[in-house]
């Protein structure tokens, strides 16, 4: 029983990273009905970018902001030059282009920086980077949850790592912030309008191209946040981290309901926990298949996802 709860807590962290990546898939799919296959690579590029920025001496928060902007603009350029010319050319061409882009980024990074994993300059619990957060918590690698006075569970047996908690809190905060942005600000409402009714949105003056660019920018920026967190959690980055996490994040987006912001968070968490459970119960060889098993199950049984509403298909 304690194992189970422990695994669930452990799964929250990896699930939160999936969730942050899934948000980008979800938003882009919402406005363009395109699976931006290269989105996972933005996560990977972001992780590298921030890592090098920190190595160059930038403080972590500045490095993160610079990384978010640069990768964000890169994603905007990618859309402009590779996806935009293919609008109206059917679904196949942009999708194949996206696969090509993914392959390109992965191999470019590998060619430039080598395929060996690179160490992150800072780790979450200790190190200087998150020192200020560390100071808020007891100075240990593991926090023990407060003991409950009485009850069936001995909470003393469950340990939650510091960094996991932090990653989870960041994911929740980002999702809430994004949801708020999409509901309360004009550009955010533009994105929602485009996802709901592209033609009507254009008619009432939502700037189409700019809104698409904004969507790609935000998605990429969130992927960079995820990249930083993942890099710090694993203490390393590799050129291949994008493809595996990216595909799983896509599964998470579909699971939660693609185009639904809280859905991406829920999907990511469920997937992360499921994977952790498999590892915990000695089924780790099935771990990588699990995400896709869930993906296919959802596609077949409830294509709109856990939190999505069924949409009518236009003929």
């Amino acid at each position: 029983m304690f194992d189970l709860i422990q695994y669930i807590f452990d799964g929250l962290a990896v699930g939160s990273v999936y969730a942050l990546i899934a948000l980008g898939y979800s938003m882009v799919f919402g406005v363009l009905q395109l699976v931006n296959f290269a989105h996972g690579e933005l996560f990977m590029v972001g992780a590298y970018f921030v890592m090098y920025a920190i190595s160059l001496g930038l403080p972590w928060h500045l490095a993160l902001v610079v990384g978010m902007c640069c990768v964000g603009f890169f994603a905007v350029a990618m859309e402009r030059f590779c996806y935009k010319p293919l609008r109206g050319a059917g679904k196949l061409a942009p999708l194949i282009t996206a696969v090509g882009l993914s392959l390109l980024l992965q191999n470019l990074v590998q060619a430039i920086l080598g395929s060996n994993p690179q160490s992150y300059p800072a780790t979450l619990p200790d190190g200087t980077v998150f020192g200020f957060i560390k100071s808020l918590f007891p100075p240990v690698d593991q926090v023990t949850l407060p003991q409950l006075p009485e009850g069936l569970f001995d909470w003393g047996q469950i340990v939650v790592r510091h960094r996991d908690l932090l990653i989870f809190v960041v994911a929740i905060a980002v999702t809430l912030g994004l949801e708020l942005f999409l509901r309360k600000t004009r550009p955010g409402q533009g994105i929602r309008a485009l996802a709901l009714q592209p033609n009507a949105a254009r008619l009432v003056g939502v700037p189409f191209d700019r809104t698409i660019s904004l969507t790609f920018f935000i998605g990429a920026a969130l992927a960079v946040v995820a990249g930083l967190l993942q890099g710090m959690a694993d203490n390393q980055v590799t050129p291949y981290m994008g493809i595996s996490s990216g595909l799983k994040a896509f599964a998470a987006a579909v699971l939660g309901g693609i185009g639904v912001i809280p859905g991406a968070l829920l999907g990511g968490l469920v997937l992360g926990i499921a994977e952790r459970l498999l590892v915990g119960y000695d089924l780790s060889t099935y771990k990588d298949g699990a995400a896709f098993f869930i993906l296919i199950l959802v596609l077949l049984l409830r294509p709109q996802g856990l939190l999505g509403k069924a949409r009518m298909v236009k003929v």
């Binding site: 990588d288 993906l295 296919i296």
Partner: peptide
């Protein structure tokens, strides 16, 4: 797009 991802998923499984 869903079909592409589903075939990918089946292959991984």
């Amino acid at each position: 797009d869903y079909l592409a991802m589903a075939t990918l998923g089946f292959a991984e499984i």
